[in-house]
Design a protein around this nucleic acid. Structure first.
Lengths: 336, 336
DNA sequence: CCACCGCGTGAAAACGTTGCCATGACACAC
DNA sequence: GTGTGTCATGGCAACGTTTTCACGCGGTGG
């Protein structure tokens, strides 16, 4: 049975000062005699006292808490973002409340956000402006990670540059028949997906080549289906760029099953630098999700503490990670 | 600029009742006329009002929040546990505060736990009883996940049965020279590691075989080193059981590099059912980390709400996941 | 007809902080 | 010696809830 935790009053009694003084000392505000300051500090220490953010939040109106909403914590990508966020928030003394939106169709209503957090970080959630406004109304500043919405603070990677760079990587290797596997749910294509696709389109256009895109469902299944379609073509591509590593994983499985050697016959490239990509030797685009989280955390801290952040919309660069799954096309190799 | 959120007083005004009545309605306590109840409900809805857990916690002494401390969110295993926890807690209306202990040498002191959460779930943290007691003093009931401590609530898998079963799996395939790769940091061996090792030892003893263990550092590096040592032996093992998939991953790499075919020459088995294991075709032991989290969440909910949980110490079963990396030893196959 | 009870409701006192204002001590310039 | 200013400190009213108690109202049993 844990006896009730010490309150500020207890500290005050022990240090022989008033509540106000204890508050001042613990909040670090000036105007306290050094001798008294020390006395209070040791008293608080001896009682292993910590201020109740509950109570202090009540009067200051700030909860020192940031709510993070994420579809799920399981996938590697989300976990990394949240991890980065957690570290960044911890640094500035903010606690992190994690909610998994998962199945909730309308978490902006369902979650106990109001009064309970100073800001909201939405990770990889495709919000309408209306939902976003409602959430902002409930939870203060909203920061989008991995997505964006006009007028809202956001942190995301340069999807366009990512696929454009990836396409160039394949072009530089000598490929000309480069297919792209995109994805789409029944609710349409996410902004991120769409942007990635245009990056590919532009790079192909610049090279004077015909784009070749296949759009399936997200996840490995989509990749498998797409490869089925691509291989049935009379002259299949020599390189495939998948929208994500997840999709690429499916594509890889399908290629293996069909006995198509990677990269000998077909080069395969993903996007994300998923955990398994390094094991598989998949060439991919690193989007440093943890950095994404860290940056979002700093941004949240600025907004919460009323500072004007350096930028309310951050676009982070990406980096190609070359591995075994891409190589020059066979035609070129075999020609003298 | 988000205008100040509605308070209970606003709802009361709009519904033409007193604060007390609004509180009663929103808390679902009986003794309110149905007509009034509805009026309050719609008023609250129209203002999209949510109770401030801050304020209510102040008076009830309960924060409706559970703190989760985890070494890091990045590794797949931790993310899964926390994900399960999050879902279970959400179900019963508890919010989840996530802290990454990471580098903090003494988070029981550093974290703002006191007054700020109703319970503490420590995931995969090797705590001394003293630390645990201090944490309990700060944050209420403590629940250990993946570790255990006499007298403390805990949820963990049956490590012993896991490695014992894994060893039997290899024995059943016909192996007799089965090596075990354990791990240990400079601070000693974790309870979980130790238990896994004894599982192996017992299964070998029961089969009348000599155990053969190698202990290195945790992580893939340890696996690589261990394989180096095992292969240098004049008659290397025909099967290797690694303490974790992480270690097995390193072992796999080292075996591939040395040109030893898996499972033809050496069968390899891990423990955890890590993400990459399915990709690699690694036979392993599934420990359903998400279930671990879910169970811990329910346990936490029970403790927080003062109910006596069915059991304060839960040991979950594990399951062998057979994949490509284990097969009968070659000797047996080649012998007529 | 009165005492009593149950029911629906409101008033008011907590809960543990913070911020503002008041107080007293002391130093300094006049 | 009086006025003015600064500094360290204490007192007190919030903040938004829950909870206890009290109130008024009909109905029921004696």
């Amino acid at each position: 049975m844990p006896n009730r935790p010490a309150s500020m009053r207890d500290v005050a009694r022990r240090a022989q000062v008033s509540l106000s003084t204890v508050s001042r000392v613990l909040r670090g505000s000036a105007g306290v005699a050094p001798e008294v300051r020390d006395r209070v500090r040791t008293a608080a220490d001896e009682l292993s006292y910590a201020v109740s953010r509950n109570a202090s939040g009540l009067v200051t109106g700030r909860t020192c808490r940031v709510a993070v909403v994420v579809p799920s914590l399981c996938p590697w990508y989300f976990a990394s973002v949240v991890s980065g966020l957690g570290h960044a928030l911890h640094e500035v003394g903010l606690d992190m409340l994690v909610h998994q939106a998962g199945l909730l169709e309308d978490w902006t209503r369902a979650l106990p956000l109001r009064h309970n957090s100073d800001a909201l970080v939405a990770v990889a959630l495709e919000l309408t402006e209306e939902q976003c406004a409602h959430a902002a109304d409930m939870a203060g500043p909203v920061i989008l990670v991995g997505e964006r919405l006009p007028g809202r603070a956001s942190v995301h990677i340069d999807d366009h540059a990512g696929t454009a760079g990836a396409t160039r990587h394949l072009l530089n290797l000598g490929h000309t028949r480069i297919a792209y596997i995109g994805s789409q749910t029944e609710r349409g294509m996410s902004l991120s997906s769409a942007t990635r696709m245009t990056g590919y389109h532009e790079a192909m256009a610049k090279a004077g080549l015909e784009p070749w895109t296949v759009t399936k469902t997200p996840g490995p299944e989509g990749g498998e289906l797409a490869v089925g379609e691509l291989l049935s073509h009379q002259s299949p591509p020599t390189a495939v760029l998948a929208e994500s590593d997840d999709v690429a994983l499916g594509a890889h499985r399908a290629l293996c099953r069909s006995g198509v050697p990677v990269p000998e016959t077909i080069s395969l490239m993903g996007f994300d630098d998923h955990d398994v990509s390094s094991v598989l030797g998949l060439t991919t685009v690193d989007q440093a999700p943890q950095t994404l989280g860290t940056v979002a955390g700093h941004l949240a801290a600025d907004l919460v503490q009323g500072r004007r952040p350096p930028a309310t919309r951050v676009e982070l660069p990406v980096q190609i990670v070359p591995r075994r799954s891409t190589a020059a096309p066979r035609e070129r190799r075999t020609s003298p």
